[in-house]
Design a binder for these strands. Structure first.
Lengths: 111, 111
DNA sequence: CATCAATACCTAGACCTTCGAGGCAACGTC
DNA sequence: GACGTTGCCTCGAAGGTCTAGGTATTGATG
């Protein structure tokens, strides 16, 4: 039995990654950390979800990877938003507004 | 490769069902129709998702089922919110606010 | 110097949900 | 009699996420 938070908003990982990369290239580990910090720990990205997601998205051509350096001077795989990822991001944000709006209106309706 | 809308908001089905039942008992088919109409078709519940979800939630004690009649006078399985389901609903709505707020702030931030 | 935490990547397997596709039955309409 | 709607169900595939491991490097701590 999943916890109340665990599974809400499954399926948002991709769009969160794409949005993070829309501000510029970042390496995988930093994407996860950034999302956690930016959301005040509301969003937690497990590495076992993050790396497979990056791999999927690269295979789909949404992002492009290259080996580089982290801010701390370590070997890191840096991801960059590709053109298909950018339009995918737009489509997903549109879908997010529609769907989260619909869900929110239902959940916040006085019952 | 899932469509942009398909998988966003996975995991919200349970809370949507619970919320629907918070306004009173309803049979399964009607829950699905009601969610689709109320959301102006933004939310579409496939029967292959709906009935297994109801079954799960009944087994978990969140809802209770009994055979009755639909508004059209047909045999229908009527579900009712049980006490554990009511507190689960509260917890999930709280989680929804936190998480959808966090996701929304990230996605709507000017990039 | 040994140890530990943090950084940074990855994988395998289990788990769960969702969906698509099908089936069954009853009713009303054309 | 055929068809659309209502109303329920099940199976298997597909897909994502998590847990739990693993590797390697660096810096701090004892």
């Amino acid at each position: 039995m999943p916890g109340p938070e665990t599974d809400l908003l499954q399926g948002t990982l991709d769009v969160l990654i794409l949005k993070t990369l829309s501000w510029g290239p970042r390496h995988g580990y930093a994407i996860g950390k950034w999302l956690e910090e930016t959301s005040s720990e509301a969003i937690r990205i497990e590495e076992g979800s993050l790396y497979p997601a990056l791999y999927r998205m690269e295979k789909r051509g949404w992002i492009e990877a290259s080996w580089g350096m982290s801010e701390l001077g370590r070997r890191a795989k840096v991801y960059e938003l590709a053109a298909p990822g950018r339009s995918r991001l737009r489509a997903e944000i549109t879908a997010w507004r529609r769907l989260s709006g619909a869900v929110g209106r239902i959940l916040e309706a006085r019952g």
